[in-house]
């Protein structure tokens, strides 16, 4: 780990003024052997930043901590019926938050399925959404891969059992956030503030970007922006949801596949609207739009759920070692739809 200086920001403006680069930009700069010089990056819970520092993939001159900013971890019910989650709220707090559990159970299930208790006690929702991908080539100092500004994706012809089954060219990462799977299905927006106090709201689904939009960045965070909050919309009556994760083992592990389903059911039981998102499937949380269309207007049952599971995998382009994910996703989609609709 390189030596760095430390800044305790006390306001969002102070943090925004003290930071000079996103973690992604600082990493690309370092991997390209540019003089890292005066780079300053933000740190929320610090789990991912420390991991990158220890691997030598990130070597900033300064780290700006957001932890001392009052109120940045507040979880507040909004007048219109939505929920505003401060970006510094920890995953454990959200897993146990009564409003999240009651109104957005897909999110509480997704965060409870993330990491270990110790990590959830420190990791924040903002940091979780902005963490860098877990691809082992990307995470290894020795591989100067596409995402770090190199010329080659080592996963496409390499050890790709944990990689993407959709949109996996030219870079085969999967999005690392399990919470994001649920948040995209819920139609969450992120709130981003800059040093001038300007705030922009972006639909989380649009905030994330695939490799063909930007190879070195998973999202549209600007260099001096601070992700201040994640906002969940009010949900119409009759909304039902579920999040399911499949790992290699029950204890602490990243998912091999995870699925979030949000269904809006009419009083007659038919499906008015469906959002179906596959996590750990693509470089961004993957909307299964064909399957969503299939559910609309119909009564949810075993056969329809099975059909939606198949439709959700249409267009998949598995790599040499990850075709096993297809039946996993098919099953998870079916189960998640049935769990959401029928309990």
């Amino acid at each position: 780990m390189n030596r760095f200086a430390w800044v305790n920001a006390r306001t969002i403006e102070e943090a925004s003024a003290a930071v000079s680069a996103t973690v992604a930009d600082a990493m690309t700069e370092l991997a390209g052997n540019a003089a890292a010089g005066d780079t300053a990056v933000l740190k929320a819970g610090g789990v991912d930043v420390l991991d990158l520092l220890k691997e030598g993939l990130l070597a900033p001159a300064r780290i700006v901590s957001l932890r001392g900013i009052p109120g940045l971890d507040a979880v507040v019910e909004e007048a219109g019926g939505g929920l505003r989650i401060g970006s510094m709220a920890t995953l454990s707090r959200l897993a146990d938050h009564p409003v999240v559990r009651r109104r957005y159970p897909a999110l509480s299930e997704a965060v409870r399925a993330s990491a270990s208790p110790q990590i959830r006690n420190v990791a924040t929702l903002g940091g979780n959404l902005l963490q860098r991908p877990r691809c082992w080539y990307f995470r290894a100092h020795e591989y100067h891969c596409l995402r770090k500004g190199g010329g080659h994706c080592f996963a496409i012809a390499g050890e790709n059992q944990y990689h993407a089954i959709f949109d996996n060219r030219p870079c085969a990462i999967v999005h690392p956030s399990t919470a994001a799977t649920a948040l995209v299905a819920l139609g969450a927006t992120v709130e981003l503030a800059d040093a001038q106090g300007a705030v922009r709201q972006v639909l989380l689904e649009d905030f994330f970007g695939p490799p063909d939009r930007d190879l070195q960045r998973e999202n549209d965070l600007k260099p001096r922006e601070v992700l201040t909050a994640i906002r969940l919309p009010a949900l119409p009556a009759g909304t039902h949801m579920a999040h399911l994760k499949q790992g290699e083992k029950d204890s602490f592990d990243w998912p091999l596949a995870d699925v979030a389903v949000v269904l809006e059911l009419s009083p007659d039981g038919s499906c008015r609207k469906a959002a179906l998102v596959l996590g750990t499937a693509a470089p961004v949380p993957h909307r299964a739009k064909q399957a969503e269309g299939l559910l609309a207007g119909k009564h949810i049952g075993e056969d329809l759920a099975r059909e939606a599971g198949r439709a959700a995998l249409e267009g998949a382009t598995p790599l040499a070692k990850n075709a096993y994910k297809l039946p996993l996703f098919e099953t998870l989609v079916r189960r998640a739809i049935l769990k959401a609709a029928l309990g």
Binding site: R3, F4, A5, W6, V7, N8, A9, E14, A17, A18, S20, D38, A40, A61, R62
Partner: peptide
């Protein structure tokens, strides 16, 4: 001050603090 950036915040380190 964070020299170079001219940003008025307290900076500690990188030497021991």
């Amino acid at each position: 001050a964070a020299e170079g950036s001219g940003v008025p915040v307290a900076v500690a380190g990188p030497e021991p603090v």
